[in-house]
Nucleic acid binder design. Structure first.
Lengths: 155, 155
DNA sequence: GCTGAAACAAGTAGTGT
DNA sequence: ACACTACTTGTTTCAGC
């Protein structure tokens, strides 16, 4: 399997390191890779330009913030023409952290973080169901995340 | 709905800003919030200590890296006793970026990034199915991610 | 629990090979 | 395409309020 190769091995090394720690000093990156820090700078600019990396973020731990429940809800849509509007509405619900289209039928899947089960219920019935075009939902509750990581930079 | 309140409003402001851009200079954070930069430093240390934030990462764009296919696969497990070992094996597959337990039956759900459909097939049949305790899988392919963001810091 | 200044480290940009 | 240097900016620590 071949990956996009607009990036050479140096780019990939930098990407991997940045992926582990986005706040790593560029000077240390340069030392680790045996190159000058201005080159690191140039390469990172190139990577930013290409769009692979945009903005570094901290992965917040949902549990520590108080979110005990994570759920995936698939949404049946009455008609494909509503999908765009539904996505716009879903984006306004802060508890909905992810939304994607799936194959098979006019359907969306969302990921919801909630403080507890009653909060999840509230989100589903008071915020998701009232959206025009939503026919029904089907929710699976996840009770433990085993692991979560970024996409592999090379396989 | 009340969130965990081991963090005061200043902590939350810092969290929000860091969540938007983890590489924002602490000095600018201090200016934005009207506090000294040493205080920013102290608060961030506190946040790290608490575990909400660990390491900043760049959100890599899977498409630009060459991953055209994202899929969620639910795995039926023959017996609950295998779950731990299955997770260990799944973690060794780089294409599997996420893994969690779900309610209902002895089941796991994984998220897979693949270069194309045949790559996905390969991962499923040559890497996931052979794992001991895996009874069968059911895969939904996502064809567009509408949005993806972090957990809300306050609702 | 917070600030301010001073020492130190890192990021940036220009120039030359 | 890369490295070197000089310059600017951010980080960290610590005394003091």
């Amino acid at each position: 399997m071949k990956l996009n190769n607009q990036f050479d091995s140096l780019d990939k090394e930098i990407l991997k390191k940045l992926n582990v720690d986005a706040r790593i000093p560029f000077t240390q990156l340069a030392k680790d890779l045996g190159i000058s820090n201005s080159l690191v700078h140039q390469r990172i600019n190139k990577l930013k330009q290409s769009g692979v990396i945009n903005r570094p973020t901290y992965m917040l731990d949902p549990k520590i913030l108080g979110y005990e429940t994570a759920a995936y809800t698939s949404i049946a849509v009455t008609n494909a023409k509503f999908i765009h509007d539904i996505i716009t509405e879903l984006e306004k619900i802060p508890e909905v952290v992810e939304c994607f289209n799936i194959t098979g039928k006019y359907a969306l899947v969302i990921k919801i973080f909630a403080i507890n089960n009653s909060h999840l219920r509230e989100v589903l019935y008071e915020k998701v169901h009232p959206i025009r075009g939503v026919e029904g939902t089907d929710t699976i509750i996840t009770f433990e995340t085993a692991f979560h990581r970024s996409v592999p930079i090379e396989i």
